[in-house]
């Protein structure tokens, strides 16, 4: 009887532990997905702001809009890894477009003309 009880207890403990483990994985995954989505949204906002800043000095690059659309499409499918990468790239383009336009503001004849 004691052996039987011990066996049943072990099965129960293992079972509970198993349930707890399964539930923990999903929660972990859900939390990770939420974090990835939040990170993407943050980056997307930054990329949009960088685009706007570049446009404010007439320095926007040609493809930034397309890249952002691709990022949004990837995010809508839940592919946050791809969406984040694209948003990062768009942000980079916005920042570089701004820097480029500022560095070129007011330039005139290049030295090779003389």
């Amino acid at each position: 009887m004691k052996r039987m009880l011990l066996f049943m207890s072990m099965v129960a403990v293992l079972g509970v532990a198993g349930c707890a483990s399964t539930s923990g994985d999903s929660m972990h995954k859900a939390a990770a997905a939420a974090t990835a989505a939040e990170a993407y949204q943050q980056l997307l906002a930054e990329a949009r702001a960088a685009r706007k800043k570049a446009a404010s000095v007439d320095g926007e690059w040609r493809d930034i809009g397309k890249i952002l659309k691709k990022a949004e499409a990837a995010a809508s499918k839940g592919d946050y890894a791809k969406a984040t990468k694209l948003a990062e790239y768009a942000k980079f383009q916005g920042e570089m477009g701004y820097k480029q336009a500022i560095s070129q503001r007011g330039v005139g004849n290049p030295d090779y003309l003389n």
Binding site: G106, V107, N109, P110
Partner: peptide, 28 residues
């Protein structure tokens, strides 16, 4: 791009647009 942007300030120096007059530009 990053390399060329960095190079822009040195290897490809430009005057300012206001440094030369339209007449001077035409001749140049």
């Amino acid at each position: 791009l990053a390399i060329s942007l960095l190079a822009t300030g040195s290897a490809f120096a430009n005057k300012k647009a206001t440094d030369t007059t339209p007449e001077e530009d035409l001749k140049v």
